[in-house]
Simulated scan of single mutants.
Amino acid sequence: MGDDDRIALDRTDEAILKALQDDGRISTADLARAVSLSPSSTADRVRRLVDAGVITGYTATVSATALGYTITAFVRLAYPSGNYKPLHSLLDVTPEVVEAHHVTGDDCFILKVLARSMSDLERLTGRLATLGAVTTNVVYSSPLTRRRLEPG
């Protein structure tokens, strides 16, 4: 959705979005009760929000630490070329890179990387450094990992 593609949301749509962001597994019946609609009307509204691209999917939030990824880092990559195919190819085979953002400024990309150890992080940043200069920031803690989106 572009800036001009914003759809009009009423208070019920906003309540549905809030409830689904709080609990993506909420049943249609419970969601309907929460927003004071019938289950069929609620299902129709959710379907409309999906069709309009407002709701883009449903997913489980998984603990990286529970899976053995004890280190989170942000790696800034100064990519010297306009040919992004090598970067995309590396991202395709490096699942430890969980986010990649093309940004303005001295660096071209900011990557969120999960690692099992410092030596694992060194291996990962070494692979990324084959594409350009990297600067790595290790995360001490994350006081805010996720925030519910509110309509603007």
Rank of each mutant, 00 (worst) to 15 (best):
S27C: 13
S27Y: 07
S27I: 10
T28F: 13
T28G: 12
A29Y: 14
D30F: 12
D30Y: 12
L31C: 13
L31T: 12
A32W: 14
A32H: 15
A34W: 12
A34D: 15
V35M: 13
S36I: 12
L37M: 15
S38L: 14
S38H: 14
S38Q: 15
P39W: 13
P39I: 13
S41G: 15
S41L: 15
D44P: 04
R45Y: 12
R45T: 03
R45M: 12
V46Q: 07
V46F: 08
V46G: 04
V46W: 11
R47I: 03
R47F: 06
R47S: 14
L49V: 04
L49P: 09
V50H: 13
V54F: 10
I55K: 10
T56I: 08
T56C: 09
G57E: 11
G57H: 11
G57V: 04
T59D: 11
T59P: 07
T59A: 14
T59S: 09
T59I: 00
A60S: 15
V62L: 13
A64I: 09
T65K: 11
T65S: 08
A66E: 14
A66W: 09
L67S: 07
T70V: 12
I71E: 01
F74Q: 03
V75P: 00
V75C: 03
R76D: 11
R76L: 02
L77N: 02
L77K: 01
P80W: 04
P80D: 05
P80A: 06
N83G: 01
N83W: 08
Y84F: 11
K85Q: 02
K85E: 10
K85A: 11
P86V: 08
P86K: 10
P86G: 05
L87W: 08
L87P: 00
S89V: 06
S89G: 04
L90W: 05
P95I: 05
P95Q: 02
E96A: 07
V97R: 02
V98P: 05
A100Y: 05
H101S: 13
H102R: 05
V103H: 02
V103G: 00
G105T: 01
C108W: 00
C108S: 14
F109G: 11
I110W: 04
I110F: 09
I110T: 11
I110N: 12
L111C: 06
K112R: 11
V113Q: 02
L114H: 10
L114V: 08
A115E: 07
R116H: 13
D120I: 00
T125N: 04
R127F: 01
L128F: 04
A129P: 08
A129W: 01
L131Q: 05
A133R: 01
